[in-house]
Design a protein around this nucleic acid. Structure first.
Lengths: 192, 192
DNA sequence: CCTATACTTACGAACGCTCGTTAGCCTTAA
DNA sequence: TTAAGGCTAACGAGCGTTCGTAAGTATAGG
């Protein structure tokens, strides 16, 4: 359980790491954004890398919790996959800064945190693949492994350009992606 | 026209920037990889950022040259799009380090190079969108803008995981992606 | 209610080190 | 004789982090 002040520091760090990058953000930059002196941060945190870890690990928890919620209900496989894509997009859009750090800055973690991160990400991808496999079970030409890679690749890229203040809500974007991914972009007639 | 020695420096810088990141790679790291002393690099280059720019700008040229080659021949729209996706994947797979720097480290460019980079990238995406638009002209439910975003998002992510030494050749990977993107992942019968 | 004690949060200075870059000198080959 | 390409040494700035200290707040004992 982190104190309220520490949560503020983590949130500000996520913003700065996302916009400037982890190594290009100094502890004094972070302190200045919080109206503190550089050394004062260390009343709350152990190290700069701890901040990176807390941001990245919390994001991993968000992704995994979302998948658990999606698979808990008893819906048809295609609907479950649709919910998972919506959820994945939602986690990213909900905290874009954290998602950016999760996708872009994780590699600056050192061991053993780096391995811990990778294990959680592998776990997430494996669970996601099971959902995809169930949805494409009647499509013999589609390999669930590559379908999963395609879906997660397309959606992970969101953090590079998505603007939460823009006109496109996350669910609407997800539905557009889902329609194209499910039925292809070469559709002579509209989806019924 | 860069000298042979400078090309070596650029290539090594691309490797290091890709694996460690731009800001986490010091000029002394780069010099050591080339069996030089730190200061000696400056006989060949003006600054660290010039290296970043040369890598990123060359990659942009590769992408644009590929698109020009693809659109030069007189093929049906769908085949042109297929060639463009193959080409995009090919440019990434051909020089994974340069592609990684192109996608991951460009934001550390300062003005005016940052704007120059973004202009070239916008140009590329606009040309790609025209190819997509021609291919999906008979698919009223598909917006070329979002189809382009989907295709480029999925393929850009390649640099995160693709291993040129692995068992999957770039063209084969591209064809798998194209099949799913064109016809969707929910296909009760195989594509004829 | 008052006081003693401890805890929290911050300051400001400093530590040892690394950063990108520059200057001047030396060697080699054309 | 010149020029290219390497060396060593150094510059000022900034890095993450630690330190001693102090003010403010909460808690507990009498």
């Amino acid at each position: 359980m982190e104190s309220a002040r520490k949560q503020e520091i983590i949130a500000e760090a996520a913003q700065l790491f996302a916009t400037r990058g982890y190594h290009a953000t100094s502890m004094r930059d972070l302190a200045k954004a919080l109206a503190l002196q550089g050394g004062s941060l260390y009343s709350h945190i152990d190290s700069k890398e701890e901040l990176l870890w807390l941001i990245v690990d919390e994001a991993a928890s968000q992704f995994l919790a979302m998948l658990h919620a999606v698979t808990a209900s008893d819906t048809p496989p295609e609907a479950t996959l649709r919910d998972a894509v919506r959820g994945h997009v939602g986690v990213i859009a909900n905290d874009l800064a954290a998602a950016t750090v999760y996708f872009h800055e994780w590699r600056f973690l050192t061991e053993p945190r780096r391995s811990a991160f990778l294990a959680r990400r592998r776990d997430y991808e494996a669970r996601f693949r099971q959902i995809v496999a169930a949805a494409v079970v009647d499509s013999p030409a589609v390999d669930p492994k590559w379908a999963t890679t395609l879906i997660l690749s397309a959606t992970n890229w969101l953090y590079q350009w998505y603007d939460p203040a823009g006109p496109l809500p996350p669910d609407e974007l997800a539905d557009r992606y889902i329609t194209m991914l499910f039925h292809g972009i070469l559709m002579p007639q509209p989806v019924p």
